[in-house]
Design a protein around this nucleic acid. Structure first.
Length: 569
DNA sequence: GCCGTTTTCGGCCCGACTGTTTTCAGTCG
């Protein structure tokens, strides 16, 4: 039994106990255990075998017994019993924004609502408003939240899909005669969410590749299977298509299945203008003889076009970017921005974050813990800021490698648009990321005004996660992006591209236009632990998708220029 | 349910907003 399954069981127990109305601290114990196990690299099954479960912080007597039972028997009586008390789908209701465990319980008791469908029908019938604690207004809010959920339904975050796709590619390389295996589709284009994974493989013996794919242990259900194309749904719910082609067809298949549809239309039209025909098998002359290209670049060349990186193939830039810009790459990034430490709600010390950042090849780290208003995440009081600065000074003095830790802060933007410290305090930071973390319920005009006021604060360096969205979960507030960008350009304030795969905010769709207006960006992993530093790859992907070059991205600057840029404020 | 420990039980990140149960529970971050 893998860690994900065990973690899921712990998390389900926590949620069911919440609906039951159990002791909140007991609930937290289960939920903490779930989160810990989810992130562990050591298989829990091994720890069970070696009798070492208790070594894990947060696992005591009771959890040790339950996890052992789950791992050894494959079942957990306690969980089964909890599940038996409610409909199978009741936990889905907790995904509805604004519905917590108490509301779910009330709706279940009063109306027997146990699924999203039940909930929608009851709202539409006007039954929900009659339940104690609900109202017509709240009913409308629930319907809106349901609509949002439905729209996002069946989609997966970029990181989930990438990790899964990488595992599958590695498996096929190791266990089939495929000579090339690559990710295609919207995942290759770095869309922030995807509905499936597309994989293209090249092999002379396609049957063997298909056999290997269908035999992958992560496959839950085969939807369709044939000699060149098979579709499955994985145990984690993600649908996967694999296509296998002859090696000489590979670049065409990769291009075709990377898409987007709009991009392919542009390419095929271009081919037609030259009396050529482009499809997933090749580029053909009128007499059906084919032009052989060995890679995508050669196909673009044959069409008289510059190579367009996959991230840009959305039907937006096909004619605009000529000559093509040099997109930002991982190698261009010198600074790690927007990181938390144990001073607020991070899990690693500043020194640990710094070591990890340096090992990843960066030259400096901007520590931006939470500000004082964010009490729930241990935000820094002015006194603690000074203590933290002393620690950073000491770290920088003891470091002999030239690596630097910079004193930043993620300051809350308060409801009126002011920042969370006075000027004397703000002056002491090398970088101030101003973010909204409260009062999300704003009209567009209010949100825009609030953020512009923060931008006009002379100590603001960048606006953090512009819309506050959580992908697949929460839409975030609406902002007039044009007005905010204009204000930021006028005041020399940058925008964060939050690289946390749950956010990827600001949205890539706005980046190019903002850059053309003169906006600058900082890619921030929003890391709360060392592992979170790896989020940078998603932020870089999004920056590329927004057609940004290194000159648009502040943390491509060396440390002195980075500091200088801020002083120019 | 876990932890630390004064080895038996109290503490466990806190505050703001929302809507309406008009005094606070529920939700969110």
């Amino acid at each position: 039994m893998d860690n994900a399954t065990i973690a899921q069981a712990m998390n389900d127990i926590a949620l069911l106990l919440e609906i039951k109305g159990e002791n909140p601290f007991k609930i937290r114990s289960y939920s903490n255990a779930g989160q810990t196990i989810e992130k562990m690299s050591t298989p829990i099954a091994v720890l069970v075998r070696e009798n070492r479960l208790r070594d894990i912080e947060g696992i005591g007597d009771a959890l040790e017994k339950k996890i052992t039972e789950l791992v050894t028997t494959g079942e957990l009586e306690y969980l089964n019993e909890l599940r038996g008390q409610y409909p199978k789908t009741i936990l889905d209701l907790l995904k509805v924004d604004g519905l917590g465990p108490k509301s779910v319980k009330a709706l279940y008791k009063a109306l027997g609502i146990g699924s999203l469908d039940d909930l929608r029908q009851a709202c539409e019938a006007g039954e929900v408003r009659e339940v104690q604690g609900f109202s017509a207004k709240r009913e409308q809010k629930i319907l809106a939240a349901l609509a949002f959920l439905e729209k996002q339904g069946g989609k997966f975050r970029l990181n989930t899909a990438w990790v899964t796709a990488a595992a599958l590619c590695a498996y096929l390389v190791d266990n089939s005669p495929a000579t090339r295996v690559e990710v295609a589709g919207s995942l290759r284009r770095f869309k922030e969410t995807v509905k499936d994974i597309d994989i293209i493989a090249a092999a002379d013996n396609t049957d063997e590749v298909m056999k290997a794919f269908l035999g992958w242990p992560e496959v839950a259900r085969v939807v369709s299977s044939g000699p060149t194309k098979s579709a499955v749904v994985l145990k984690n719910g993600i649908p996967v298509d694999v296509r296998v082609v002859a090696p000489n067809q590979f670049p065409y298949a990769l291009l075709h299945f990377t898409g987007s549809k709009e991009h392919n239309v542009v390419l095929r039209r271009r081919a037609a203008e030259q009396n050529l025909k482009l499809n997933e098998y090749g580029l053909f002359r009128e007499d059906d003889t084919s032009l052989q290209c060995d890679n995508e670049t050669e196909i673009y060349q044959a069409l008289g076009l510059p190579f367009l990186p996959p991230e840009l193939r959305e039907g937006l830039y096909e004619t605009d970017l000529c000559p093509p810009i040099q997109l930002v790459t991982q190698n261009d990034l010198l600074g790690m921005a927007h990181c938390h430490s144990t001073w607020s709600d991070g899990k690693n010390s500043i020194a640990e974050m710094a070591d990890a950042t340096r090992e990843l090849g960066y030259h400096y780290l901007v520590i931006t813990d939470h500000s004082q208003s964010s009490v729930y995440v241990n935000g820094l009081t002015p006194e603690r800021v000074l203590e933290q600065h002393a620690e950073i000074d000491a770290l920088n003095e003891s470091a002999d490698t030239g690596f630097r830790v910079l004193k930043g802060i993620e300051s809350d933007i308060l409801a009126d648009g002011s920042l969370d410290y006075d000027s004397d305090m703000l002056r002491q930071f090398a970088f101030v990321i101003a973010s909204v973390h409260s009062n999300f319920d704003m009209t567009e005009a209010e949100a825009t005004k609030r953020i512009i006021r923060a931008i006009e604060n002379p100590f603001t360096s960048a606006v953090g996660h512009l819309t506050g969205r959580l992908l697949l979960t929460r839409a975030g507030y609406t902002v007039n992006v044009d007005k905010v960008v204009d204000a930021a350009v006028a005041n020399g304030v940058a925008f964060e591209i939050n690289a946390n795969p749950r956010r990827l905010d600001m949205d890539w769709r706005h980046l190019r236009r903002a850059a053309e207006k003169g906006a600058r960006f900082v890619i921030g992993p929003d890391a709360h632990r060392v592992a979170g530093l790896r989020n940078m790859r998603y932020g870089i992907g999004i920056a590329r998708k927004g057609a940004l070059a290194p000159e648009h991205v502040l943390n491509c600057l060396g440390v002195e220029e980075f500091l200088q840029w801020r002083k120019g404020r």
